[in-house]
């Protein structure tokens, strides 16, 4: 598989700061992978998200070294709008990314900027709205929607621009469980049905354990762990030292293992846990 994202040795400090927000981070992502980024608050997750389309350092300023290449385009050489054709970024606060009068304008905005023909914009608008399950919301005011609906509009906005990669920064952190579930379901379909490469920053480790292909753990600006959900969520000590809450089934298994239960592979989903504990009971 070809790598759609190549991040090589990036180190970055915001203007007027001494400690770098990102510290020598490298990784590459093959096309179609679902990558989750986890880490404590202030770890640099959002900063890393801004790197994918060059908002860091272009808009924020500051010192940066290393390189970020997405779909063959280097963020040093290409301006944000050019990168935006390949990377759709949904920033952390949905309210701030909805600034048009209605949902239709909001979703058309990116396509219009890219100069898509009118007919194609209408088609993409329709497809994106259908995809996020908000048909009939064209004339609604984006800021008057529920938090979950706003997030889904924000996803539709970047989806309509036909990017290869979608970067979503904590899309569910401010949502109630139902809104959260709808957004996560949408994100899963982005990856599974549309084959988009997804980079998701989230604290929802239960969801990540179930759906992500790979987890990057960021702490203090450094990439401290990079592996499958199974590998990452098995490392109880490292996660707790990074103040990351693993899925509850993992926590339970850590505790049981401490008590002497013969658990070799930590289960990361409920189903796995059920199978394991049935085995323990019968064995």
């Amino acid at each position: 598989m070809q790598n759609i994202i190549e991040v090589a040795n990036i180190t970055y400090a915001y203007p007027r700061t001494d400690i770098p927000a990102l510290n020598n981070i490298s990784f590459s992502v093959p096309q179609g992978q679902f990558v989750a980024i986890i880490g404590p608050t202030g770890a640099g997750k959002s900063t890393l998200c801004y790197c994918f389309n060059g908002a860091v350092p272009r808009l924020f300023g500051g010192e940066m070294s290393g390189s970020v290449v997405v779909a063959g385009k280097d963020t040093y050489e290409n301006e944000i709008p050019v990168m935006a054709q390949h990377v759709g970024l949904v920033v952390q606060n949905a309210r701030n990314q909805l600034f048009n009068v209605n949902v239709q304008c909001e979703i058309a905005f990116g396509c219009e900027n890219l100069g898509f023909p009118r007919q194609k914009i209408i088609q993409n608008l329709h497809d994106a709205l259908t995809f996020v399950g908000l048909q009939g919301y064209e004339n609604r005011q984006p800021t008057a929607l529920s938090g979950g609906q706003q997030q889904r509009v924000a996803i539709a906005c970047v989806l309509a621009m036909e990017p290869d990669v979608l970067v979503l920064d904590e899309p569910t952190s401010e949502l109630d469980p139902i809104g959260s579930e709808q957004v996560m379901e949408t994100i899963t379909r982005l990856n599974r049905s549309l084959g988009k490469t997804v980079i998701l920053v989230s604290h929802d480790t239960e969801f990540i354990a179930q759906f992500a292909d790979r987890v990057l753990v960021i702490n203090d600006g450094s990439l401290v762990l990079d592996g499958s959900p199974r590998e990452v969520f098995s490392k109880a000590d490292l996660l707790s030292s990074c103040r990351i809450r693993p899925p509850q089934v993992c926590q339970l298994s850590y505790e049981l293992r401490k008590k002497g239960f013969p658990i070799t592979d930590i289960p990361i989903t409920i189903d796995e846990a059920v199978t394991l504990y049935e085995g323990l009971q019968h064995g």
Partner: peptide
């Protein structure tokens, strides 16, 4: 954050912007 969001949606990208 609005500047980030707007540029991320290719604000000012093309000379020939189209309109829905």
């Amino acid at each position: 954050s609005m500047a980030v969001a707007m540029d991320s949606r290719a604000f000012g990208a093309m000379k020939t912007r189209t309109y829905i």
